[in-house]
Amino acid sequence: MSPWNQTASPYTKSPWIAPSFKENLNCNGLIGSIVREAGHIYSLAAYRDLLYTGSDSKNIRVWKNLKEFSGFKSNSGLVKAIVIAGDKIFTGHQDGKIRVWKISSKNPSVHKRIGSLPTFKDFVKCSVNPRNYVEVRRNRNVLRIKHFDAVSCLSLNEEQGLLYSGSWDKTLKVWRISDFKCLESIQAHDDAINSVVAGFDCFVFTGSADGTVKMWRRELQGKGTQHFLVQVLLKQENAVTALAVNEESAVLYCGSSDGLVNFWEREKHLSHGGVLRGHKLAVLCLATAGNLVFSGSADKNICVWRREESGAHSCLAVLSGHTGPVKCVAVEEDHDRENKEDQRWIVYSGSLDKAVKVWRVSEHAPELKGFISPTPENGFTQS
Rank of each mutant, 00 (worst) to 15 (best):
residue 285 C to A: 11
residue 38 A to K: 05
residue 232 V to P: 00
residue 291 N to A: 11
residue 298 A to C: 06
residue 75 N to W: 02
residue 291 N to T: 11
residue 360 R to F: 06
residue 156 L to Y: 03
residue 98 I to T: 05
residue 137 R to E: 08
residue 275 V to R: 11
residue 95 D to T: 05
residue 211 G to S: 04
residue 235 K to S: 14
residue 55 S to V: 02
residue 40 H to V: 12
residue 61 R to F: 07
residue 367 E to D: 14
residue 176 R to H: 08
residue 144 R to Q: 10
residue 41 I to D: 03
residue 248 E to I: 09
residue 24 N to K: 08
residue 187 Q to P: 06
residue 314 S to G: 10
residue 365 A to D: 05
residue 18 A to K: 10
residue 64 K to R: 14
residue 237 E to M: 13
residue 85 A to M: 05
residue 88 K to A: 04
residue 199 G to V: 01
residue 275 V to M: 08
residue 197 V to Q: 08
residue 187 Q to C: 07
residue 123 F to K: 06
residue 278 G to W: 11
residue 296 G to K: 02
residue 45 A to N: 00
residue 107 N to S: 12
residue 326 V to P: 00
residue 217 R to G: 02
residue 18 A to T: 05
residue 223 K to L: 13
residue 18 A to P: 02
residue 270 L to I: 00
residue 287 A to Q: 10
residue 111 H to Y: 14
residue 268 K to S: 14
residue 126 C to D: 15
residue 238 N to M: 14
residue 95 D to H: 11
residue 136 V to F: 11
residue 215 M to R: 13
residue 227 H to E: 07
residue 319 L to G: 02
residue 336 D to M: 12
residue 57 S to L: 06
residue 177 I to S: 03
residue 338 E to F: 15
residue 164 Y to V: 05
residue 339 N to G: 06
residue 23 E to S: 14
residue 65 N to G: 12
residue 63 W to H: 14
residue 305 W to T: 00
residue 81 A to W: 13
residue 367 E to Q: 15
residue 173 K to I: 05
residue 252 L to S: 07
residue 92 G to N: 06
residue 63 W to L: 03
residue 198 A to P: 01
residue 196 V to M: 07
residue 310 S to V: 03
residue 233 L to P: 02
residue 368 L to S: 09
residue 303 C to R: 00
residue 239 A to K: 13
residue 191 D to W: 12
residue 64 K to F: 08
residue 97 K to E: 09
residue 160 Q to M: 15
residue 270 L to M: 12
residue 69 F to P: 00
residue 383 S to D: 15
residue 268 K to F: 13
